[in-house]
């Protein structure tokens, strides 16, 4: 058996095992770790197929960004507070299994028909070599033939980002601002009213005699020579 096939089966085996582990692991963080392993295996399969660019993009985008954000959320979740996936809900489990099976069959059907008919697309090895490599071929395809689709996808993603910001903003300003005001400190005497962020202080006016001198960046220090000079009016509460 040639080496490449052995390595391929090795990688594929690990990928399938880790994918199974993603579903089976009880701790969501373990699932995420196994998903990362699975992604890297898939990237390795891409490399074996000669699609280095896809492999690297797979790692950078899926492993390096999306899964990190997923982990970011999972780390904050107490595993005991999660709904239990492994027990109960037989209908959901059955439907899930069915959907998975259908998906698998679809992929199989596509592969099998392609093998039976023996038809090939335009991305043959010769064509790719003629362009100058996988990366170049991909670039040409995206930026010439599928430019419109590409731009639409990027617009959709931008809208998604904006939507996320809009959804997150009121939370930040409203609820958490409200919460911040509402918490009471153990060390704090009268809680709510003083827990508000400090507003501008009492007006400070320099009385005659003191010399406001520029100090630091954009600040002045009043150099008081006389103890009776009181730049601050008021004081105390109420």
């Amino acid at each position: 058996m040639p080496w490449e096939v052995i390595i391929f089966y090795l990688i594929a085996g690990v990928a399938i095992l880790s994918a199974g582990g993603v579903v089976a692991a009880r701790n969501p963080v373990h699932s995420a770790v196994l998903l990362m392993v699975c992604f890297i295996q898939i990237a390795a399969v891409f490399v074996m197929l000669g699609a280095e660019f896809l492999a690297v993009i797979q790692i950078i985008v899926y492993t390096g960004a999306i899964l990190v954000l997923l982990l970011f959320v999972l780390m904050l979740v107490d595993p005991e507070d999660l709904p239990e996936f492994h027990t109960g809900r037989p209908v959901q489990r059955a439907i899930g299994a069915l959907l998975g099976l259908i998906l698998l069959l679809e992929v199989a059907a596509a592969v099998v028909t392609r093998t039976i008919t023996g038809r090939q697309g335009s991305a043959t090895l010769e064509n790719i070599e003629a362009v100058g490599g996988n990366t170049e071929a991909l670039g040409r395809q995206i930026y010439t033939e599928h430019l419109l689709a590409f731009e639409i996808v990027s617009m959709v993603l931008t809208i998604g980002i904006l939507g996320a910001i809009v959804l997150a903003m009121p939370e930040r300003l409203g609820v958490s601002g409200y919460r911040r005001r509402d918490t009471i400190s153990l060390g704090h005497p009268r809680g709510t009213d003083l827990a508000l962020p400090a507003t501008a202080g009492a007006p400070i006016r320099a009385t005659a005699g003191s010399k406001p001198e520029p100090a630091g960046i954009g600040r002045t220090l009043v150099m008081a020579g006389d103890p009776d000079e009181q730049p601050v009016v008021g004081g105390g509460r109420r």
């Binding site: 660019f53 492999a55 690297v56 492993t63 390096g64 990190v68 982990l71 780390m75 490599g133």
Partner: peptide, 25 residues
Amino acid sequence: DLNVGALFVLAFSSIGVYGIILGAW
């Protein structure tokens, strides 16, 4: 000499953060 060598470095530095996140968790 990978034909995507520069991206390769970036890709692996992005995996490296897993060590930090997972170790922290």
